[in-house]
Every structure is written in structure tokens, then in C-alpha cells.
């Protein structure tokens, strides 16, 4: 199935990302505790960032910062793709904002219902 010789840095990290994604989704759908659901959400967040960065990686090349170690004229042959990194950079900060928002809603719900179990949150059930 998996050829061991074809393992290299970007495939391995992408594999980690995929497995973490599945685990996180499983946590979201199977857990009852709302804090646990938010933790699973952060795991999914991390896994997506990992997958995106590993798509942008190019074997044997270095970080996209031009200093003494990198030839300025020949930069295109020595650096990795900067675009996914810029994307992920902003996504992580937004992830913190979303986590804070979810946590504050969870706290409000706890104040209303005195419970963290999502089966007890009946306000939107019909």
C-alpha cells in the first residue's frame, strides 16, 4: 500500500495532517462535552494548517527569507512557496479568535443550563 521509499518530509507531514483531521472530526461528532468539542476543533485547525504548509513545501529548498545564505538572483530555485505560509499565518490568528468566541458562547450556555453536556442544551431543539 504505502511504498516506504516514497516517504519523504512532505508526504509524512501530510499524512500526519490527514490522520489528525479524521481524529478531530471523530472527536467533534462523538463527544458530548462541549469543551471537548472545542478541543477537537482546535485539533482540526492544526491539521488543516499542517496540510496546507506541506503542499507548499518543495524538496531540498529553504525558507523564503532572503539573507546571506540565499543568492538573491537565484532565489526562485532556492526557496519554497511563500503563498501557503502567508495564508496559514493569518488563519492561525483567526483560529484563536474563533476559539475564544466559541469558548465564551460555551460559558454563557453553561451559565444558562448549569451543564456542559450538549444533549442538555434544548433551546434549539424542536
Amino acid at each position: 500500500m504505502i511504498n516506504f521509499n516514497s516517504l519523504n518530509i512532505e508526504t509524512v507531514s501530510m499524512g500526519i495532517g490527514v490522520i489528525l483531521f479524521v481524529l478531530g472530526v471523530w472527536g467533534i461528532v462523538s463527544q458530548k462535552n462541549i469543551i471537548k468539542i472545542i478541543i477537537s476543533f482546535t485539533i482540526v485547525d492544526t491539521s488543516i494548517h499542517l496540510i496546507l504548509v506541506s503542499i507548499g513545501y518543495i524538496r531540498g529548498k529553504s525558507a523564503p527569507i532572503i539573507d546571506a545564505a540565499i543568492n538573491k538572483e537565484n532565489a526562485a530555485n532556492e526557496v519554497v512557496d511563500p503563498l501557503p505560509q502567508a495564508l496559514v499565518l493569518t488563519a492561525i490568528v483567526i483560529g484563536l479568535g474563533i476559539t475564544a468566541l466559541m469558548l465564551s458562547y460555551a460559558l454563557r450556555m453553561y451559565k444558562e443550563n448549569k451543564s456542559l453536556d450538549i444533549n442538555k442544551f434544548k433551546a434549539l431543539k424542536w
Binding site: 507531514s13 492544526t46 499542517l50 504548509v53 507548499g56 525558507a63 496559514v88 492561525i92 483560529g95
Partner: peptide, 19 residues
Amino acid sequence: VVYVFLAAPDVAITEASIG
């Protein structure tokens, strides 16, 4: 740390400080 392997130090700093 994996981001450092993937040659993305910017993302590594962000993840370390925020995540």
C-alpha cells in the same frame, strides 16, 4: 517543530506563540 522542518519559520513562530 514540524513547521520548522517544512521550512516555514514564520508559521512556526505563530503557532508557538498562539497555539
